[in-house]
Design a protein around this nucleic acid. Structure first.
Lengths: 341, 341
DNA sequence: AGCGCAAACGATACCGGTATCGTTTGCACC
DNA sequence: GGTGCAAACGATACCGGTATCGTTTGCGCT
């Protein structure tokens, strides 16, 4: 069923050899212009398409890029994928997207799967559970180009693209402080993630600079990145159970922001409603004027930059020894309660 | 750089022929169990992985599925992709995602690209602009399995998976009526889309059943599916400019809902604020208690079902002549203003 | 002894391209 | 008229597997 025309078909039809046709199609200088025209014309008419799989086999290149994220149904990642796609397609690559759902096992599975499918390179944003990096190291050592974005692993000599998490966190916390809040809790992501550490640092910095003591009891980690809501529920319930309840919460991620709001909606009451600020790339949030200011990462741009660097690695003729750590700026989006909607 | 071990390497190492190794690896009955063990052991140790590209070339099968949606950064589609992925991976397929951004040209490009990349089948949700289906028909006639989901084209004999758009639209409109609204406008998608027609039908049905006259002036189409905000802005401004302004709006899609809210936020005022109900799969919306009830489609399930059917088509040994049109239920999510958040 | 037959493995072709090397042809030139 | 050389094309091998057919070997049976 469905057998497309090959180079040999053209050769036979025009009484040429496969070699000649191949060369004509790739515009080789040692083919008679006359012959070229005939071949091109015939190919056009019978709408010949070179078989990318045969090509892949021959050139040991698949023109596809693997993407590993925790989930696409997450504004940050879907926007990043948008950016990844835009660069990939421009360069003739297609992207194969896999989701870890923040599970280490699935990350290992997916990455192995991608390597088997012989992608030319991989873009990775680590799962929240990942603390062992052997599965990635192995591939990297074997020569597979890898670029990290968002959730970085520093132990690998390669390009890394992230946003200015420290400063973003600082802005968010500072923002809460400026609004008069003093007991600011922090709902953090899994502790080993790069973004967790950086955002925590920004949080601490803002507090310190404002002379507010840092209390470890105010910081709660979500070891699975909030992929199961129970985890977030527990964290919020913990905050609500404190003797001296926090008056505000700085939330560390997109996923957690939604989880946190959900939990507060479930367990909070009118009498007590903490202010919230946190990382989020949701467009929908922009529509509402709840008391929730957010830090937006340049997701699309991060995807673009990461993909650009990955393709550079892939297409480099020589091993690359110099690696960039690119950090893009974050943006504070203030939301004033009381306005329309 | 990075050359994995092949079947021939194993053959040489064990003093066997490539054929024998191949058969041993695929557990052929005509290979000595002893030999099998040796091969398997060696393969395991040197972690041999069969080259899927060579396999694809030989079997004329790529074990990959093309997905065409308007954009992943859209709750409905990202959830659908979640569903698609879950079934695809379970069956050993990977998915290649492309975005049309509701442009006809990009749809044609992407589909051609996928066909060239020799995917085994394609899942399509049409772009808002598409009125000509030749690019799809051609591939379908050539034998490429295709399944439509969400935005269906009826002119092709294949499986189609959608949600009960008519009833969903009816529920939303009915909901507005029950809340006391009478002049209900309809912000519709591109007129030729299947979902547009069905949702319009549901809207009309609800009005008629409640004895409310249908006025065409109250219906505005967005020919690009709201992919550029200007279009939506214009539609909303039109509603606002009417002599007798609508007291509520039924919005036809996820994208349009966000666009519509954005526009209202821009151009509306406190004095006049229409109620809104519409299709949306945004989780974030659930958090807020604005006066916006929504119709949720079973996106994940739609993705699952569509992929399941597509794989059936792909793996069927004989041409399939009977095709299903699967319609899944929709759900009304009521939001009562005034509650928390 | 001679035959049949099955078990276990090898050799080869093929999938659809491209790279490498070889061949034919015509023509200029000494 | 033989040599050299370039233009234009053909033949072949290879990428990494698998399907098909062929070959060897041993053993049972008459």
């Amino acid at each position: 069923m469905f057998k497309p025309i090959t180079i040999k078909d053209i050769a036979q039809a025009l009484n040429l050899s496969a070699s000649t046709v191949s060369r004509a199609l790739s515009d080789s200088y040692e083919i008679n212009p006359e012959t070229k025209k005939r071949v091109l014309a015939y190919a056009e008419q019978n709408n010949y398409k070179r078989n990318p799989i045969a090509l892949s086999l021959k050139q040991r290149k698949s023109y596809s890029i693997g993407v590993v994220v925790c989930e696409v149904a997450n504004s940050f990642f879907s926007q990043a994928i948008d950016g990844i796609e835009s660069i990939a397609y421009k360069n003739g690559y297609n992207i194969i997207i896999t989701q870890t759902h923040d599970s280490y096992d699935r990350e290992v599975m997916n990455i192995k799967h991608l390597a088997n499918r012989s992608v030319d390179g991989i873009l990775i944003s680590l799962s929240a559970e990942t603390t062992n990096f052997d599965h990635i190291k192995k591939l990297h050592d074997a020569g597979l180009p890898i670029v990290f974005f968002d959730r970085i692993y520093d132990g690998l000599a390669t390009h890394k693209v992230s946003s200015d998490n420290r400063n973003g966190a600082k802005m968010a916390t500072q923002h809460l402080i400026e609004k008069g809040y003093r007991k600011i809790a922090h709902l953090a992501n899994a502790p080993h993630l790069s973004i967790t550490k950086e955002r925590l640092a920004g949080y601490r910095e803002a507090l310190t600079e404002n002379g507010i003591p840092i209390e470890e009891a105010n910081i709660t980690y979500c070891h699975h990145g909030g992929s199961n809501q129970k985890e977030v529920d527990a964290a919020v319930q913990y905050f609500l159970s404190m003797d001296e309840k926090p008056d505000s919460i700085f939330v560390a991620s997109d996923r957690l922001s939604i989880g946190c709001l959900t939990a507060i909606k479930k367990y909070g009451d009118k009498a007590y409603m903490p202010a919230i600020a946190g990382f989020s790339n949701s467009d929908v949030l922009d529509l509402f004027s709840t008391d929730f200011s957010s830090i937006r990462q340049p997701a699309f741009e991060m995807g673009r930059v990461a993909t650009d660097r990955l393709i550079q690695l892939i297409e480099s003729k020589y091993p690359v020894y110099e690696h960039e750590s690119i950090v893009l700026g974050t943006e504070l989006i203030e939301r004033i309660p009381g306005k329309l909607l």
